[in-house]
Design a protein around this nucleic acid. Structure first.
Lengths: 223, 223
DNA sequence: TTTTCCAAAATTATAGATAATTTTTTATCC
DNA sequence: GGATAAAAAATTATCTATAATTTTGGAAAA
């Protein structure tokens, strides 16, 4: 039979909850009550508690002993922190991945870029964006590094979805294309430099902000 | 009352087990049986399972559904991976911490270096080394980043302890001193550069290896 | 009306019990 | 003797039950 990625109730619960947190269905500070969640999944609270420990480690929930678990809050400062960590780690991953990249992988990454440009909503864009990054980084073959980057992507996506509650307009991702051009021509360091600046944009207000200022839409959409 | 750092049985178990794994008391591949551990701690297996999830997230254990949890294996490739991640993230942390460093902090870091140089065994050295890094990085005030670095330090220490089963000889840590000199003189970028090279040495065989070759002692002690 | 205290309800953390799976042992066959 | 299969033991994953803690919702006092 087609075996699921993971087989335990705890891992299923943690995946579903992580997804809800990232998508903003569960808002920051929301209290995660173990019995309620257990009931929803038709399980007892034992696997729920295990799922909590996982979410905690991913930075998506915080637990206070005897006082329960809440969806982690995040402010713009933490978004910047995640962006800088991503920049540092993705550059590292790309430097190692570069020598293993094949034309087929780069074609798939270009396809992901096109799908991102054509995305009809923010969720579709995020999925394509994440796929792009994963495609060009996975060949580094460093599983711990990739796992860390995945967790950081989740945090980034959470910010993206929370900031982008309103309409979506298509645009062209020039950074992704420039990265691919550099990689195709074997200029890995240049690609890494573009990637670094690209990811660093997350959580920065774009240059031409109107006086409006504080609005959530005032942040650049990048990733 | 003086409250413990964390208060649940699960967190206590995970801390103790993490320590044993890092120190090599529990060898790679060793099977962690939940009932045995529960019995040792006078607890039930529920908190033990929660501790397992934490160790898994830290990369110290791996869990296969229905087949139990084992101490994570690690080879030289993973040690290098951890070293590179540490280099990338510690440089990032230091760049942010630099502007918040005070003479008092740098004095404490120098004291940690002296204690490392005077250390009588590998455990004392590791403790002092870790303290040095933590002191100069903590002022970056980025909790997620610091937590990641802590986990990577644990992985590094595990390698250090496994490689250094034999005698210990004192030596002087010139890198730490050079970093402190640069920081005292406000040359943060230079300090970051030294730190990067310093951490990158982990898991690299030293230049002047005798033909002996594969022996565990053939790796540089740095960190 | 606001504050303070106390009881009721909800919730967490843990223990003990059970079904299902994996591992080990033992017996059997070639 | 070594391989194989069945039976026994050990172990995992989960559920149900219970003690302890925290939160909630008033009632009494200021």
């Amino acid at each position: 039979m087609a075996k699921e990625p993971e087989d335990t109730i705890a891992s299923r619960i943690s995946r579903v909850l992580a997804d809800r947190i990232v998508r903003g269905e569960l808002p920051a500070g929301f209290r995660l009550r173990q019995d309620h969640i257990a009931e929803e999944f038709g399980a007892s609270h034992v696997p729920v508690r295990e799922a909590f420990r996982r979410l905690e480690a991913q930075g998506l929930a915080i637990s206070e002993p005897r006082r329960g678990v809440r969806v982690a809050s995040f402010d713009i400062k933490e978004v910047r922190e995640v962006a800088e960590m991503r920049a540092a780690l993705e550059v590292l991953a790309l430097r190692h991945a570069a020598k293993h990249l094949t034309p087929a992988i780069l074609d798939a990454a270009e396809e992901a870029t096109r799908e991102g440009d054509a995305a009809a909503d923010v969720h579709a864009w995020e999925e394509a964006n994440r796929r792009f990054h994963r495609l060009i980084l996975a060949p580094c073959n460093m599983s711990r590094l990739l796992a860390s980057i995945d967790d950081l992507h989740a945090a980034s996506a959470r910010f993206l979805f929370s900031a982008w509650r309103s309409g979506w307009e298509k645009r062209t991702d020039h950074d992704h294309r420039a990265i691919l051009v550099a990689l195709r021509q074997g200029r890995a360091e240049e690609a890494a430099g573009i990637l670094e600046r690209h990811v660093q944009w997350i959580g920065r207000a774009p240059k031409s902000t109107r006086k409006g200022g504080e609005s959530a839409e005032a942040f650049a959409i990048v990733g």
